[in-house]
Simulated assay, not measured.
Amino acid sequence: MHPLHREAHLIQRIGWLRAAVLGANDGIISTASLMVGVAAAATAQREVVVAGVASLVAGAMSMAAGEYVSVSSQADTEEADMARERQELATMPEAELDELTKIYVDRGVEPALARVVAVQMTAKDAFAAHARDELGIAEHVAARPVQAALTSAATFASGAVLPLALAVLAPAPWTSIAVSGGSLAGLAVLGGIGARVGGAGVLRPTLRVTFWGAVAMGATALIGALVGRAV
């Protein structure tokens, strides 16, 4: 008999990984695009840096608030479903047992064996069995609003620091080039890291995030140049 071993599945990372990658990507792209657009309007380097700081603070707060509200709505829905499930288990346990049996039958288990499994799962923890198999709610995918909000704010800010630091360190005539080029390199690295941590291939996610980052920066640079000439 082989000894039992503990497996670490990549799906367990999905909650924090999604928020982390989204926050850092948005931090780099939003802040760099804004700064490149301001720089294209022929504004002084100091004002470009101020725009970057404002983008960092406002973006981090916006990401935190948006993520908290979004994930809280998911958590509220999960709580409502679980409360209803608890009530049904208390008021009509036989119907719930039949329902659990049917779930296992639909998954390919023989009816008699499915009934035995449902009875045993119900005896151990009826609510956990129904939450997992009927509602699809498990611990590693449960909504965590505070965790998601803090992760999004922190990762947005950490991403936004890159273009901001480049703008501070680069000579004034090279601000736009330094911010755009360095930010695209940062996006490429971040895309590769996110793909690797998530267990996916590296090339496609890296190219994808770099391409859309370049599109965003190019669009804001064009708008900034047009507005700068107009005013």
Rank of each mutant, 00 (worst) to 15 (best):
M1R: 13
L4V: 11
L4R: 14
H5W: 09
H5V: 09
H5G: 06
A8G: 14
A8P: 12
G15M: 02
G15E: 09
W16P: 12
R18Y: 04
A19Q: 13
V21C: 08
A24I: 08
A24W: 14
A24T: 15
G27T: 03
G27P: 01
S30I: 10
S30D: 09
T31S: 15
A32I: 02
M35L: 12
V36W: 10
V36L: 13
V36F: 10
V38S: 00
V38I: 04
A39G: 11
A39P: 11
A41D: 08
A42W: 06
A42K: 10
T43D: 07
Q45C: 08
R46G: 12
R46N: 13
E47N: 07
V50S: 05
A51W: 04
A51G: 08
V53H: 03
V53P: 00
L56C: 03
V57S: 08
S62V: 13
S62N: 15
A65F: 09
Y68V: 09
Y68R: 06
S70D: 06
S70M: 04
S73G: 12
A75Q: 10
A75N: 09
A75M: 09
D76S: 11
E79V: 14
Q87H: 14
A90C: 05
T91Y: 11
E94N: 10
E96Y: 09
L97V: 10
D98N: 02
D98S: 01
D98Q: 01
E99W: 08
L100D: 02
L100T: 03
T101E: 09
T101Q: 13
K102C: 01
I103W: 00
V105S: 03
D106T: 04
D106H: 10
R107T: 02
R107L: 03
R107M: 02
G108A: 02
G108L: 01
P111V: 01
A114K: 00
V116I: 15
V116E: 09
V119A: 09
T122W: 11
T122K: 13
T122P: 10
A128D: 10
R132L: 05
R132K: 08
D133W: 07
E134A: 13
L135A: 11
L135V: 04
G136K: 03
I137N: 08
A138T: 15
A142F: 05
A143K: 04
R144T: 13
P145T: 05
Q147T: 15
S152P: 01
S152M: 02
T155F: 05
G159K: 14
G159T: 11
L164S: 04
L164D: 05
L166G: 02
A167F: 10
V168N: 07
V168A: 11
P171C: 05
A172W: 04
A172V: 11
W174C: 05
S176E: 12
S176G: 09
S176H: 07
I177Q: 15
A178K: 07
A178T: 07
S183K: 06
L184W: 01
L184N: 00
L184R: 02
A185W: 03
L187H: 03
V189P: 07
L190S: 12
G191R: 00
G194W: 00
A195L: 03
V197F: 07
G201E: 14
R204T: 13
T206W: 12
R208H: 14
V209G: 00
W212K: 09
W212M: 12
V215I: 15
V215F: 10
A216E: 14
M217Y: 03
G218N: 11
G218E: 13
L222C: 12
I223L: 10
I223D: 01
G228H: 02
R229I: 13
V231L: 14
